[in-house]
Nucleic acid binder design. Sequence first.
DNA 1: ACTAAAATTTAGACAAGTCTAAAAATATAT
DNA 2: ATATATTTTTAGACTTGTCTAAATTTTAGT
Lengths: 219, 219
Amino acid sequence: MSSQTQENYLKCIYKISEKYAEGASTNAIAEGLETKPATVTDMLKKLAAQKLINYQKYQAVTLTPKGRKAALNIVRNHRLWEVFLVDKLKFSWNEVHDVAEQLEHIKSEELINRLDVFLGTPKFDPHGDPIPNKAGKIINNKATPLNESKVGLKLIVAGVSEHSTDFLAYLNEVNLTLGQKVVVKKVVAFDQSMQLIINKKDILFISHQVAKNILVVCQ
Amino acid sequence: MSSQTQENYLKCIYKISEKYAEGASTNAIAEGLETKPATVTDMLKKLAAQKLINYQKYQAVTLTPKGRKAALNIVRNHRLWEVFLVDKLKFSWNEVHDVAEQLEHIKSEELINRLDVFLGTPKFDPHGDPIPNKAGKIINNKATPLNESKVGLKLIVAGVSEHSTDFLAYLNEVNLTLGQKVVVKKVVAFDQSMQLIINKKDILFISHQVAKNILVVCQ
DNA sequence: ACTAAAATTTAGACAAGTCTAAAAATATAT
DNA sequence: ATATATTTTTAGACTTGTCTAAATTTTAGT
């Protein structure tokens, strides 16, 4: 039985491991959880003792199958609650993260399975991230960052790789929301900023920084 | 900012104070929270330091206005979540307590206000208990225990004063659910057990112990 | 390869919430 | 009214999760 704190560590290690195959370093985890490296080391030992992670002194850690399952369960909870908050309670996609961070730790399998059914077993959360199923199976989201797209391709916004309120609120403002049709009109070679056509008519300039964090699929 | 533990103490003191006007004793709180009296004393000092309770050594404690407001907020959360679990997720009224005990501690005013609207601002939870409003105002439930009712009166089940899963599951079994029409046909003088007529036709025997914990209003 | 920088771990400490055992205060019974 | 029982508090200790400061290990630069 993992505590809330331990669940947060597992989730954090999972997220880092998605990006870096070698696993999660002490520093990266400390940054992700806004805590100190020394604190992380203490916790890594406890998680290793429960066989939730593979830990060798001074090396990046990875999740064991047991740890991965626990992490995916938290991710499932988090994303289902986000769907609930947006679809049912009419929150905007940039307002739901903090509350979902709390709700994800509610312990009841029955609750989450019923919530899943109530929501119509959604496959993606409001940010386009895939929702793991009961068994911990998760769709591999093959969307690519907008900054890697070629000029002229017809694209659809399918997700984001940055979840901060500010970023999402900005996307709302400029109408770059999930499902939006986008064509890259021009890329400025100097700073890789982009000129987009949205909804076949509106023109929008975005920075490289923004383009990098928008995920798209071909239309 | 109260911790989950402190919130549970406040709720417990509130519930005891509903029954005993003089307030909550250390022992009563310890029993309610399934902890030890020594632990309770420690916490009472902390709550008093935050001006959430009135505490004098060796005396029963009462909530200050600030403490009462905090307690009613938790009660509001708990009861709204119970309505959600029963109305939306189709849980039975005897399955919701434990999960609601967790959900009640989620910290977000916006969340609970939106949930309230989503549920249609219900006035009572699935056990017939009144739901405090945003401001902490709570309807005084004037339902009376079934065992105090006279023979022949036409009654409606309006609540329960015992919330254990076993008791509620039993009521389900014998069809004594919220809103059920009941007439007291006979009271056995020896043990105060009761013979009821349910739904104008079915006959049911219940013990005094059961009757005491069912709340009714006149039809 | 050797040194400086960066990352990680250890050691010792603290806060919150809990416990047991013992002491002190209050309540009860005859 | 006084002894006994009950309730409450105190004292000291433990666990979880956190911190700072110092030590150690790994990595990187030249």
